[in-house]
Amino acid sequence: MKPFLHLKAPYRTATREPAAFDAAFPDLSFYGSFCLIVFLASLKARRGLYGDRDWARSSIDTLRALERVGVAFEITGVEHLKAARSPFVIIGNHMSVMETSILPGIVSPVRPVTFVVKSSLLEYPFFHHVLRSRDPIAVTRTHARRDLKTVLAEGTARLEQGISVIVFPQTTRTRRFDPSQFNSIGVKLAQRAGVPVIPLALMTDAWGNGKHLKDFGRIDPSKKARFSFGEPLWAGGRGSDAHQAVIRFIGGRLEKWRAENAKA
């Protein structure tokens, strides 16, 4: 497999017109490809044969499927991942299922990685085999104190094993970034483990959230998918400075992107 990050960085989707069917039926085209990707990954995961390279391949295949229907990607700041000399905690906002599908293809070729996820996802049809194989950190999203203990204990264990951790501190996926709903659990984990924080700003609403099946919303090729990693931060003291720096980075990127979208 040719790792995604061996392509030119920063990464921007080459301009091209999608095929007629893909342009006319982006939802049907993409979800047909995506379900096949997940199904094949699940078969391997059930047999215990689904490793980091497979995860990255599935992720890249998903990115390509989105590009085929016209979704353009812009991915910047990857050099901060590549320059890190230790595992890290990535802290990002959470808009859609796109980030959990695409991030493994960006991060995994650089360093082993896992997610903090909602425990109910470990029972999700088909996908749960893949997710369980990645040894995620499962939280309830309803018991904050219990979730903090789980993340600190299990997250520190993963980081000590050389596995980086991706955290979305918002309680749910949303296009609106509200700093008051953005908790400091990721910063606390980085402090406990003695590793840096890497902020991550995301604009992934090209993959919408569905009304009945949240993971299967509309695909909107008119919206660009953007991923931006910031410079590593070390959380000193009580971690409030690092937490605010992450919030400023994400808020600043989102404001900049929305201004660019308004001009387009």
Rank of each mutant, 00 (worst) to 15 (best):
I166H: 03
R145F: 04
E154D: 14
V107F: 12
A193Q: 10
I106L: 11
E160C: 00
M98D: 15
D178I: 07
T156F: 04
V117L: 14
G155F: 03
A153G: 12
T156L: 01
P179K: 06
P109A: 02
F177E: 00
A157L: 05
H128D: 01
D135C: 07
V107M: 13
F115R: 06
T174N: 07
I137V: 10
R146G: 08
K188Q: 14
R145D: 05
I137T: 03
P196C: 09
I185F: 12
D135I: 00
V167K: 02
F168L: 08
V113S: 12
V167P: 00
T100K: 10
S108L: 12
V165H: 01
P125C: 01
S108H: 13
S164D: 02
P109Q: 09
G155L: 01
S108A: 15
E160Y: 07
V139P: 06
V116P: 04
Y124L: 14
V107P: 00
V165R: 05
Q191G: 14
R173A: 08
H143V: 11
K149G: 05
R176N: 10
H143W: 11
T172M: 04
M98L: 15
H143L: 11
V197S: 13
S180F: 03
A144N: 01
S164M: 03
P125I: 09
V167Q: 02
T140Y: 05
D135N: 14
T174K: 06
I106P: 02
G194E: 12
Y124I: 06
T100S: 13
R134V: 08
L148G: 07
L103S: 09
P169Y: 06
T174Q: 09
S133L: 06
T140E: 04
A193W: 11
T142A: 08
K118I: 01
